[in-house]
Every structure is written in structure tokens, then in C-alpha cells.
Write a protein that binds this DNA or RNA. Sequence first.
DNA 1: CGGGATCCTCGCGGATACTG
DNA 2: CAGTATCCGCGAGGATCCCG
Lengths: 123, 123
Amino acid sequence: MPKETDDPKQQPGAGCSIRGVLDRIGDQWSLLTLEALEDGKKRFNELMREIGDISKQMLSKTLKHLEQDGFVRRTVYPEVPPRVEYELTEQGRSFLIPMKTLIGWAEQNHAAITIARQRHEDS
Amino acid sequence: MPKETDDPKQQPGAGCSIRGVLDRIGDQWSLLTLEALEDGKKRFNELMREIGDISKQMLSKTLKHLEQDGFVRRTVYPEVPPRVEYELTEQGRSFLIPMKTLIGWAEQNHAAITIARQRHEDS
DNA sequence: CGGGATCCTCGCGGATACTG
DNA sequence: CAGTATCCGCGAGGATCCCG
């Protein structure tokens, strides 16, 4: 893939927009971060603790991406010690709907998947 | 992450099952492959052409994962030249629903995201 | 406390060649 | 045609230190 501009080989409607958005929310952390922000404002270290096994860079990078894409609003309070809070924007909250659908499916089928996965191990 | 068994730090309901499933469908290719299989049986090279910029290993690996997780059924026809066809299972088709919801959201909001993304460039 | 800069590792994933 | 095996570059991402 020499260029990152739109690939004319791709269908303009379907595949194109999917990739752009899913590449972002597809990574391990974005969904978990959005989910952690679901129930209100959170501070940086608060998010780290909630997500658990995420490093600072990854959380920082993920939040920056989410902010850049309009999912998250970042508010800095000019205090000392500094305090920064993150919260979902309207767009971010609207995304929770398809996301919840996905998570719901995952929870319902995750057992079946685990079984299918193990069945393949004995082969 | 020394062990891959369930992490007791995680909530058993929410975060846990999300990760297991999303790790699989989260990668670049699984979703595109499932989408390519949406309208019926496909052969290997047919899938490669349809997806476009996927290599043989990645398609092979992705299909193997999807088969292992019960999303895809693989059928080998004992002919010469060999023919192999892939198709969605029931579970695979059921997954199309949340997936479509997600894609639909992506298509609707992808323009807004692009704008938000560019707005951040001038900063 | 909230991150940025740096270093370094590890495995994703492309290219190619080979097999059945 | 439908993969598997091998080599290898490169970038994601963890650890650590530092700064405002």
C-alpha cells in the first residue's frame, strides 16, 4: 500500500468507510476505553486502573485518537496538582449503541465460541 | 501477561468476554472476510480478489481462525484441480447483525469523523 | 498528576518459494 | 488452485525516565 489516499479499487460506499472507522475502534483499547467512559467523567489514572492492563502511552494515544475523532472531550482544570477529565461527546455516546449491540452478541456467543475453539484443539 | 487463563482482576461478565471476541473480530481482516462471505460461498482466490489487499497468509490464517471459532465452514472437494469453498455458519450469519449495525453507524458518521479529524490537524 | 520522549523488543504481516 | 514454510522489515506497544 504505497499511498494512504483513497484506493480507487475499493467500493466507495462499503469497504472504504468501514476501514477508516474500524481501524480506529478495532484496536484493542478504543472500545475498552469508550466503555470505561460510559458512566461519566473519568480522570487519566482512573481510566488506567479501570481498564487494568493498559500502559500510559496506549491510554494516552487512544484518548488522543478518540478526542481527535470527536468521540471524547478532554477538559483540563488549571489547578495544581493538574487535573484532566475525559468524557464522551454526543457522537461518542451515539456510538455506544452499535457498540452495545456488538458487546451483547459477544456475551451471548462467547461461550459457544470458546467451545468451538477447544473442539478444534483435539482435531 | 504470563498466563492466558482468565484474569481474576477482570469482571467476569463484561470486560472478559468482550476481549476474547473482539480480539478476533477486531483485527483488520476478519470483518472484511466475513463481509466478503456474506453473499454466499466463495473460493480462496475469489476471496483474495474481493478483499483486494490481503496476502495469502493473512487470508489463510484469518479463515482458519474464523473456522476454529465457528464462524465459517470449510468444504474441500476431492477433485483435481482442488477446490475449496468457504461459507458462513449459522453463528457466522448471526454475527452479521451486530456487525451491520456497526458498519451502518460507521457509514453514517464517517464523514463527521473525517471532518473532526481534519479540524484537529490545524489545531 | 498527566503525560511526552526515548529505547528496545516482539510478533504482525508482506514477499517469495515450495508442495500436493 | 489452495495453501504451507521461511525469511525478514517494520511498527505496535511495554518499560523507564523526565518534565510541567
